[in-house]
Write a protein that binds this DNA or RNA. Structure first.
Length: 927
RNA sequence: GCCCAGGUGGUGGAACUGGUAGACACGCAGGACUUAAAAUCCUGUGACUUUUAUCGGUCGUACGGGUUCGAUUCCCGUCCUGGGUACCA
């Protein structure tokens, strides 16, 4: 009987269905294990071969853990709110809910073919009202809480109101807005309802504030930085400018310190933790006030280098800073306006990355150094961002390269402040070594002493104070989009108020057009009936939540996916606790993974979950890239090169022939204006005219014509081969290009495995039931050891090659030992579930592997070696080998080696300086 | 720009804690079986060099330095590629 994967897959699917094998046990007395994949966004392009990489890895681990006796939760769902669906809706008029449901259906069909052990009864989809009901409820909880710095946890707003009524906010240590005024209890009582609401906004964990956004008048909407290119929208090419708008925010900064220290408890890669640390960006420094000459105000700056304050030769504030209009003098008004206009068109990313173009504008005003009274000019410059710190910096050109370049450009003094700063004529020297010079009362001191003395002086003079600052900002939570969760908020007399739980979910209204309203308001604002349906002049909030809202807590919902009364029940959460293994890409390093940790800590404060961190272990999978073919420069007139061409149109030498280009010019509008006779720089051979395309490895995407669909691979080679091939490609965490050329090797391997069973034409396997060769057992146990270790360290590619070695080695025996075949089938079950299920039955088992099987136990006694093949190296180069008794001591080995004929020959009469023996590994003779 | 990761044969990759660089595959070349093809199996395969053939030798893990008896692995510097950079998910 030949290997027929179609039949085998069909049989296995029926068996699993009949035994309901993937239904998660709950309640259960077994130890739990929670394996989670980052759920996909169901895009219109369908699943490509990159998606399953992580899912296969997590599925292997889940099945392995099940065989080891754990109760495993391994769910799947869909992150179904997002811009692409909305963009598609705008273009086609189709409701995003419809396309989303269609896409999910397609994803599920594709996923089901790969043989994942998902329990689909626990599926979640963030765009389902039954799910986003709880996302909205969580928002309500955040709105109703503030952060008590003394208790270091979130508390209910009503407790804060009680404190305000008792003693105002004079003694409250809370995470709050920067300019929160102090008030007493009587003052609080005298506040209007609006004033009270505004004051509480300064404290809520979900709050409203003004912020700068990329506004595109032409599109009538707010854009992400990556949708803006050189001051124009990427779509349509309309001008983009900065605009101040009222937005919802989440006060993630309240949790900055806990998010930082929590990292220490996690089993994540150091690089991943480092990225989060850098994003949180804790810095210890000082706030300093600089008075302004002939003006009552002051410039406040945060600096981590207060020790350099005597090197300050100018100040720079952000072009959007509110002081600009107040302190600038009339003679510069026009230049300032022009410069602000220029900055207004640039994104924050552009403003920070462009270090070659130094620009700025003098305001005509001067700040006064609080320590030595020196007057320094105040500039605006685009490298200072309004959203960072105070939006102002004290510039020290001798120590900071950006300040240095600025000083050079505007001919400002560069004052050395440390005796170790040399050659500061050519570049800044940010050193902290040495003793201070030109620095008044800290002259001669070193960094630490100087810093302490200056902070003390600041606090005595009441012009500043030592401060811990975080680079991380509060999370913007408003989107002026249609396809997101509506806020459970309505306004009464301009005051935002919450809906009650019984009124949730607040479902998205139908709208005529998914386009933005154009006024800066979201498309929801056009649903006037919905907006006003509460009556009494009450209006609904029309912004929607961002995509990270739904994904910040979905891992909890899987624990209790169908609960209508709670977001997750206490009992379910206490059993499943947290995610033991989370697999996903590094692109979520600081977005999703930080927001989820923040929400989880908030739930922990509320007593809603029993763990402080959601994801114990994190494994990052790399991206599978596609091979694409692109046109080259000067090949086609009027086309600048780099246009993607479908791979199947080119021949195997990457040549695109004339008839194919004609086809393309009719079917792809990027090519439609080409005159194939005149515009193309053809090369020619006996088959006709062609252009030679260039090969490139890129991210898989529909528009690049390089998407590979797993369905095609599965149809040709079977699901098990696909699974093993994806794992065999390389380490899970590495990026790698997709190349099906190697798949034949895996397919042949499965064939060899099949042949070990000696199937006859009636489909009966033939094996021996008496104990076989010791050597066969050695092969098996070597494999048990290797595969178990490899799975534990997520090295699936080497596990697959261990199987190949095992099957190759066993192939030399005519008839296999049944026990060996059984253990091999069990070892391979996580990797190739369909084939192994079939073989398991052929070995005489009735119940499926996951219910009946146990992970094989490694027995060291089969692996004992009496001889060790020692490499003998000379100065680190291996030049001889020697089989030696494993029991020999270092001294005995050295003696035997030096007496060896070959060694004597290589030594050629020279006496070795030293002999290093590493027992069981290597001998190194130093000449 | 800043933060993080990666760079090993023609290709994907292995070498887990500093101890035989290239496991396992792909591709390629040659051979067996076959009327032929497919399938399967066997042999060889980093580069250079020596030799009738062996036995050997030299170089070699992006590049330039360093530490070490010994470096793909640790340290310093450079180049290139990928991810993130706060409204793509």
């Amino acid at each position: 009987m030949d290997y027929n994967f179609r039949e085998i897959e069909q049989k296995a699917i029926e068996k699993w269905k009949a035994e309901n094998v993937y239904k998660v046990e709950y309640p259960s007395t077994k130890p739990k294990f929670y394996v989670l994949d980052m759920f996909p966004y169901p895009s219109g392009a369908g699943l490509h071969v990159g998606h399953p990489l992580g899912y296969i890895a997590s599925d292997i681990f889940s099945r392995y853990k099940k065989l080891k006796g754990f109760n495993v939760l391994h769910p799947m769902g869909f992150d179904s709110f997002g811009l692409p669906a909305e963009q598609y809706a705008i273009q086609t008029g189709q409701h995003p809910a419809k396309t989303t449901v269609d896409n999910i259906k397609r994803y599920k069909e594709q996923l089901s073919k790969i043989g994942f052990s998902f329990d689909w009864e626990r599926e979640v989809s963030t765009a389902d009202a039954s799910y986003y009901k709880w996302t909205q409820w969580i928002f309500c909880q955040l709105f109703e809480h503030w952060y008590d710095k003394t208790a270091d946890k979130a508390k209910e707003i009503k407790e804060l109101i009680a404190i305000f009524e008792q003693e105002g906010n004079l003694n409250v240590a809370a995470a709050c807005g920067d300019n929160t005024n102090k008030f007493t209890a009587p003052e609080w009582t005298s506040f209007s309802e609006m004033e009270k609401s505004d004051m509480l906004m300064q404290y809520r964990l979900a709050y409203q504030a003004d912020s700068w956004v990329n506004w595109c008048e032409g599109l009538g909407t707010v854009l992400a930085n990556d949708e803006v290119k050189d001051g124009f929208s990427e779509r349509g090419g309309f001008p983009v400018e900065k605009k101040k708008m009222s937005q919802w925010f989440l006060r993630i900064t309240a949790y900055a310190q806990r998010l930082l220290i929590g990292l220490e408890t996690l089993d994540w890669s150091d690089s991943m933790k480092e990225m989060q640390r850098n994003w949180i960006g804790k810095s210890i420094g000082a706030m300093v006030k600089f008075e302004i000459k002939n003006h009552s105000g002051f410039v406040e700056v945060f600096t981590t280098r207060i020790d350099t304050i005597f090197g300050v030769s100018f100040m720079v504030i952000a072009p959007e800073h509110e002081l600009v209009d107040l302190i600038s003098t009339s003679e510069y008004k026009e230049e300032i306006k022009a410069y602000q206009k220029y900055c207004n068109t640039r994104t924050d990313t552009d403003r920070q990355s462009d270090v070659k173009n130094v620009t700025g504008q003098f305001l005509g005003a001067y700040a006064i150094n609080p320590f030595n009274g020196v007057e320094v000019p105040i500039f605006i410059a685009d490298y200072v961002l309004i959203g960072y710190g105070t939006g102002a910096v004290m510039a020290v050109p001798s120590g900071d390269q950006r300040d240095f370049l600025f000083a050079k450009k505007f001919n400002l003094p560069i004052i050395p402040i440390l005796d170790t700063q040399i050659s500061i004529e050519t570049e800044a020297n940010p050193t902290k070594e040495g003793k201070y010079i030109n620095s008044d009362f800290i002259d001669g001191l070193e960094f630490k002493a100087a810093t302490n003395k200056l902070i003390e002086a600041l606090e005595i003079k009441k012009i500043g104070y030592g401060k811990v600052n975080f680079r991380m900002r509060d999370a913007g939570f408003s989107r002026q989009r249609y396809w997101g969760e509506p806020f459970p908020i309505f306004y009464e007399n301009g005051i935002p108020k919450l809906l009650e739980l019984k009124d949730l979910p607040l479902e998205l209204p139908e709208v005529i057009s998914y386009k933005p309203a154009g006024s800066g308001e979201s498309p929801l604002s056009t649903a006037t009936k919905w907006v006003n349906e509460l009556g009494d002049g009450k209006t609904r909030e029309t912004d929607t939540m961002p995509a990270f809202a739904g994904s910040s807590w979905y891992f909890l919902r899987y624990m209790d996916a169908q609960n209508d009364n709670e977001f997750v029940s206490v009992a379910a959460q206490q059993y499943w606790q947290d995610v033991d293994l989370y697999i996903g890409g590094t692109e979520h390093a600081v977005g999703h993974l930080l927001y989820s940790r923040f929400w989880h800590k908030f739930f922990y404060d509320k007593g809603l979950v029993s763990t402080e961190e959601p994801f114990k272990k994190l494994v990052n999978q790399g991206m599978i890239q596609g091979r694409s073919l692109l046109t080259k420069e000067n090949q086609i007139k009027g086309i600048s090169g780099g246009l993607n061409v479908p791979i199947n149109l080119a021949d195997n030498k990457d040549r695109l022939f004339k008839d194919k280009l004609v086809y393309l010019s009719k079917n792809d509008n990027r090519f439609e204006n080409i005159d194939v006779e005149k515009d193309v720089n053809w090369e020619e051979n006996e088959n006709g005219q062609f252009i030679l395309l260039q090969n490139e490895v890129e991210k898989m995407s529909k528009s690049k014509y390089n998407v590979v669909n797993p369905d095609d691979i599965i149809n040709e080679f079977g699901a098990d081969c696909f699974r093993m091939f994806e794992m065999f490609l390389g380490p899970i965490e590495q990026h790698k290009p997709w190349d099906t050329q190697g798949i034949g090797g895996v397919s042949r391997f499965i064939g060899k495995l099949w042949r070990l069973f000696n199937f006859d034409e009636n489909g009966n396997a033939h094996f021996s039931t008496t104990k076989g060769d010791d050597e066969a057992y050695k092969i098996l146990h070597k494999t048990i050891k290797k595969v178990t270790e490899d799975i534990e360290r997520f090295s699936f590619n080497t596990a697959v090659s261990a199987f190949m070695i095992c099957v190759n080695d066993l192939s030399k025996f005519k008839l296999q030992d049944k026990n060996i075949l059984s253990d091999l089938v069990l070892l391979m079950a996580p990797f190739a579930p369909f084939t192994t299920e079939f073989l398991w039955e052929k070995l005489g088992n009735d119940v499926c592997i996951l219910k009946q099987g146990n992970w094989p136990i490694f027995n060291e006694s089969f692996l004992v070696e009496n001889l060790i093949n020692y490499p003998i190296s000379f100065n680190g180069k291996v030049r001889a080998k020697l089989d030696l008794d494993a029991a020999l001591s270092e001294n005995e080995i050295e003696k035997i080696v030096l007496e060896n004929e070959n060694v004597i020959k290589i030594l050629d009469g020279k006496a070795p300086k030293k002999v290093i023996v590493v027992k069981g590994r290597i001998v190194n003779v130093v000449i």
